[in-house]
Design a protein around this nucleic acid. Structure first.
Lengths: 230, 230
DNA sequence: TGATCATATTAGTCTAGTCTAATGTCGATT
DNA sequence: AATCGACATTAGACTAGACTAATATGATCA
């Protein structure tokens, strides 16, 4: 039961795969590569290693899924990240929009002990500064309900989790627009009378205008509701 | 002035070389290898890279010295380490004998910004929990002239400043004995032929007998020399 | 002076992780 | 059913950093 120490790279891959595998689906090589900003063959290579380690299941040319061991490791990283973000904002004066990169580096270096001390100092919190649920130390995470881009409040921060169509033309279009699972967007505007929604892609710093029909296909996790923002 | 990002390994080598080259001497391949628990040829290889990077000067078969750039980088790591140790003990309930390994990992992952926030939260401290001076953000470090308990004159008044080991067993023992940084002691006796030293703890009014090996780890600031006493 | 021995260095191998270029696979379109 | 294009994989090279085995250096002592 002694979990072997994972490298930083491995931890990052597991987190990415977790984010990309919306309920029972496969995370593809291409999407993992996109999320981690790596070349596709690098991902193929790592996928081989991860599946030999028993952290993922790989179906060639289809994609990968986390095993229970991989999922446990991914949730542990997510707990670390979110506890760190909350600690840094509450105790060290970070803002919710600049904690991410600090936590991203620290999550690979902290011990379980330190994370539990931080969590205790925070009163065993359930949500991070972005409103995302914090997995428990035992690896349980609150299931969050999804909202479509077409219905999300203006001002909300969303993380795209699931695309509700199999139509290749639409899927291709979403991919071209950078609207792929894992991406974080802010809802900046919506035209009245069921009009289009404008979202801002946090990573690329660009905006997209999404009509109602397509917006209803983009199911997102609500990271921060409009009302909660400072 | 944009310092390139250094790898964890490089940072560890620089710290080790700093520790081994007090007062202008050379740090040898063997000693670096010993301190970092690496094989000597690994050190030879890294020495070559470090000197190409301009971080050290290498005199073949003699050893290495830090350049000013290398020294600056080393002091930055030492500042990080000591601020982290102090923060973890003051704010997260760590003991002075178990912070070391946590700080050792974190020091490579924290940003300058985070360290300065921690330092500010601590009131810009000058000493870490072991009594070691913390370099300033600009890279200055207090030069202290220290004497070990094993070598101090009988009759001297000392203030314990640094404990020259990271070994948890020894650190714990010292803590049990009340021999922790900041404590003031008087040297009341020493047995001949490198025998043990007897010190009197001014605060608790008790005596301790310290063998030569451990006494050489207890570095003290000389408060009052024997000759100066009334 | 020269032999000996500790230490340093070179030579060569290994692993993890990255990359580019070349090749396979598979589903969609004709 | 054939083809085309997107995606995945393999092949092969590179880097940092470690290792072991072999060799070089230089200090010490007879």
């Amino acid at each position: 039961m002694a979990e072997p120490a994972l490298t930083r790279s491995v931890e990052d891959y597991l987190k990415a795969i977790f984010r990309l595998s919306h309920q029972g689906g496969f995370a593809t090589t291409r999407d993992i590569a996109g999320l981690l900003a790596l070349a596709a063959p690098s991902v193929s290579g790592m996928v081989k290693r991860l599946s030999e380690m028993g952290l993922i299941e790989h179906v060639p040319y289809r994609g990968v899924q986390l095993t229970s061991q991989g999922r446990r490791a991914a949730l542990k990283m997510i707990r670390r990240h979110r506890v760190l973000e909350l600690y840094l904002t509450r105790h060290l004066g970070y803002d919710w929009d600049n904690v991410h990169s600090e936590a991203e580096r620290l999550e690979h270096a902290v011990s379980d002990d330190l994370i539990e001390r931080m969590a205790a100092a925070l009163g065993d919190p359930r949500y991070d500064p972005h409103g995302d649920p914090i997995p428990t130390a035992t690896g349980d995470i609150e299931e969050t309900e999804l909202v479509s881009v077409a219905d999300a409040e203006v001002g909300a921060e969303l993380e795209l989790r699931q695309v509700g169509t199999q139509d290749p033309a639409r899927l291709r279009y979403f991919a071209e627009q950078g609207l792929v699972p894992g991406v974080r967007v802010s809802v900046t505007d919506r035209q009245p009378f069921n009009g289009p929604t404008t979202v801002y892609l946090n990573a690329s710093g660009t905006a997209r205008i999404v009509g109602r029909e397509l917006g209803q296909l983009l199911w997102c996790h609500l990271a921060v509701a409009a009302a909660e923002r400072g």
